[in-house]
Amino acid sequence: MSKNKDTVLSIALVTPSIVAVGIFIYGFIAWSVRVSLSNWKGLLPDYSWAGLKNYINLFSDPRFLVDVRNTVVFTVIFVLGCLAVGLALAIMLDQNLKGEAFFRSLFLFPMAISFIVTGVVWRWLMNPAAGDRMSGFNLLFSNLGLDFLVNSWHLTPRWGMAAIALAAIWQMSGYTMALYLGGLRAIPDEIREAARVDGASEFRIYTNIIFPLLRPVTLSAMIILGHISLKVFDLIIAIAGKQLPLDVPAIYMWQTTFDGYFFSRGAAIGILLLLSVAVLIIPYLYYTLRSEAEI
């Protein structure tokens, strides 16, 4: 048995996967870029050169500008909501309470469910119909005498995305809790003990010691959640279908490509999405893998 033979064999073993990833990810990205630089509109491929026309048009396209605004609204509410809920739950569960494992499993179960299931149920929870057709949360609020809380949810003008973000927070805040709980458990007890010996209050221990130590977890969570919110698609489709006030780039891409056959514009939206995700993920991969290598 020679070392050379093993090297050849190991390359042969990973080659199919590397070729597959090379083609299906990098080859296809390059192909999408090429489509985005063409005039392809219609069922038959048209690779005539259009330069950056599709990109330039998108930035003056009212629908795409709505999409960008919606993505920003969704991202801010969704990320902040998940971080706040996740951190609060993690701190509470970190107090060594009885039943911790039960609560932890319960807060995380939405991660096992598809955005489609979540969306279909939340579609009825957030049903904005009034009168006899009133249902979901509005009906609950009305029955409890909390009529001031009755609202039109995702059909609220301008702020409908906030309702979508609420459903997304339901789904992903448990995951954020798990990230924070991991971070809290990684802080050595000695640090807290030392602070207590020095007479620091529990509150001060959190604000001055624990929260600064959790900053890397917050950063990771923001990146993971942020890239999820850039890709949000099925949740909106399941809650509201395709409606302009709740449009996002992923839905625009899908509709313009597969309903409108405007392939070059669809490809341009896809590439813009990729760039926005890459800005978040490439530095994250770089630092994560580098710190792993240092250990």
Binding site: V21, I29, H227, K231, P249, A250, L274, L285, Y286
Partner: peptide
Amino acid sequence: IFPLILFGMFIPYQSILIPLVEF
């Protein structure tokens, strides 16, 4: 090669969807 493979985990699939369907 490893980071290049990993990046594939995070891409928005909209960026490969048209070639995927054509392929």
